[in-house]
Amino acid sequence: MNKKIQLIKNSILFATTSLLVIGCSIDEKQTVITKTQLVMQEEFDTNGAPNPSMWSYNIGTGANGWGNNELQYYTDRPENITIENGSLKITARKELYLGSSYTSARILTKGKFEQKYGRIEARIKLPWGKGIWPAFWMLGANSDTVLWPQSGEIDIMEYIGSKPTQVFGTVHGPGYSGGEAISKSYTLPNDRFDNDFHIFGIEWGENYINYYVDDVLYNQITPKDVEGEWVFNQPFYIILNIAVGGNLPGSPNSETVFPQTMLVDYVRVYE
């Protein structure tokens, strides 16, 4: 056990050093991942609804549009969420549904798979268009007993469809949430995120979270970077969703094409 911890610490040092190297010169061969022991894999290989032993649903509109004035009603209908051809399909639709103008889906591993530290990544093809707001993210497993943002939020990948070449990774915690969250964006060179699948991940350990897209490590967040308590040394659960509208992306416009689908090839967790 001690030995293992030692190994991880070595990995941390390596990752930190790597970052410095990237900061000075772009090294395409840079190793961005160090955690390689697979502890969870969700390959979305069985057609139909997501595996209920791993995923549950958020249904409805939440309070104030899930806190962001989002416009969609989340459902568990196959029109909004299903597994097909080896991918999870979350589909945002423009339709009148129980008082909302849009429907979509949001699934989470709360109480089913919760993880403290590790490498958490997903391979995703993103949708596009103004007002489309997909995310691959995590909330603190204590979120029922501890109020957000004290419970913590790690946004591994967020994206708004009106900026198809850019994603961003963010942490929210006490004193640094909402508009004050610690965030960094990554712009894909000579391509866009709705053209094909890309890998979005973090390597997360004690007192650090490293963000990567494909083979590019683009940020590290440590307690030094946050204006408050570091709340990420505890288990978190995973969330996948597409929001429509809301404070961040603004509402869809007449040019937004519906339906819009996020394809998730897999979610994998390594230690």
Partner: peptide, 8 residues
């Protein structure tokens, strides 16, 4: 140019 960022 080949931008790679024009789609749909």
């Amino acid at each position: 140019e080949k931008l790679g960022t024009i789609a749909h």
